[in-house]
Amino acid sequence: MAYLRSVPRVWREREIKYRLIGGACRSCGRRFYPYRQTCPACGSEEVERVKLPETGTVEVFTVVRSPPSEFAEQAPYVVALVRLDDGTLVPAQITDVDPGEVYEGMRVEAALRRYRTQGERGIIEYGIKFRPLIQ
């Protein structure tokens, strides 16, 4: 599965994935994740790189019970679209919870976690997941 086990690819994507780097369109005002040079909403090329906020709310979620092969050992796990506090919607896993503990509107905080490993010998891929806010 060469497409999943690429080291340069993980390296290239690390800043956006580790730090939640999004785009803010200077033309239409839309903020989006991940960052790219063209606004997906209006097509403008005037997009600024922004560090997105690390807290947000679970907007919608599901429990993956029939996972892609590289996630087989993790199932069942919770994936969600998290509405960050600036309004940007981000897809991510929700961690440190049992599937039954998640609810729409749950306040969550970004945390760097392991997403998958490239087999026994390959690199570990880290990225941002969200876990309940510790208050």
Partner: peptide, 13 residues
């Protein structure tokens, strides 16, 4: 630690 945690991720926190 949870299944997606290691000494690196908890250090980050």
């Amino acid at each position: 630690p949870g299944p997606d945690e290691d000494s690196l991720t908890i250090a980050y926190e």
